[in-house]
Design a protein around this nucleic acid. Sequence first.
DNA 1: CGGAATCCGCTTTGATACTG
DNA 2: CAGTATCAAAGCGGATTCCG
Lengths: 153, 153
Amino acid sequence: MEEGTSKSPTHCGGTGPSFDYGDADPFQWDTREDCEVRQILDRIGDKWSLLVIALLDLRRLRFTELRREIDGISQRMLTVTLRQLERDGLVERTVYAVVPPRVEYELTPLGRTLHTTIRALVSWTEEHRSEVAAARQAYDARTPAPGSLSASA
Amino acid sequence: MEEGTSKSPTHCGGTGPSFDYGDADPFQWDTREDCEVRQILDRIGDKWSLLVIALLDLRRLRFTELRREIDGISQRMLTVTLRQLERDGLVERTVYAVVPPRVEYELTPLGRTLHTTIRALVSWTEEHRSEVAAARQAYDARTPAPGSLSASA
DNA sequence: CGGAATCCGCTTTGATACTG
DNA sequence: CAGTATCAAAGCGGATTCCG
């Protein structure tokens, strides 16, 4: 697991900006604590974690069930994703020592609280979907689109 | 701008799982609307957007100011990030036609609402930081660490 | 100053094959 | 069934250079 064990440092170099925040108290997170916040945000932003969390919030699922649900996912990425979530204490893995191996995954209480929080973000997306779509359309419209209209060649 | 203009499709292939959700009403987002949700999530999870949004939530900033604040960022990624945010209607760009070019960026009302939502996620991270850290430590402890202890060679 | 274009490398992801 | 290991492809981020 080349990317699961040793995570990329991403940014983490910030020692805090010299920006004039005033009291800087409610805003101290934006650059300084980048490292820790980033860990979770990376997980949220990655390709599959969110889907896995959402699915597991519904009920316990086996490896194959998860794979079939998400379907677009490769077994490799499902494994990697589950390992990361397990490592972060968001998912619990249960192995049954039976002849055909049976492994089940379920969200931990911690994982459930995260899912709740994530849903707020998803809700935002739902609510403002049309605004974002409109903004994109407007932006694309006023964008010259390199080499398409005025270009005679 | 090779990755800014044409975003990667990521997943977007799901037409909805055959998973038994029951009513499936409160859960319809988890796989089906993947595409749209993913767009925002990718933005949240990427390397710099969050920092830019946080900074701009404080006040209007010029390109160079932003660059100096974040500092670890390259001018390229700052440009790319700002363009994406602008396209999504989260940031507004104002150009002043003066001799030394002056461009200012500020959060739109839409951008501010997103920032508010994001903060909830950041708060979660703050609150559960120790739990996550503990989980990771425990996980790493019970992980055999391939070829380190029992391996005599 | 603000930004676009190019090149280049590292990280992440996917496909495939093999194993307990 | 549930992984692990390896390989190749693609993505994303960074450095540099040139332009308005």
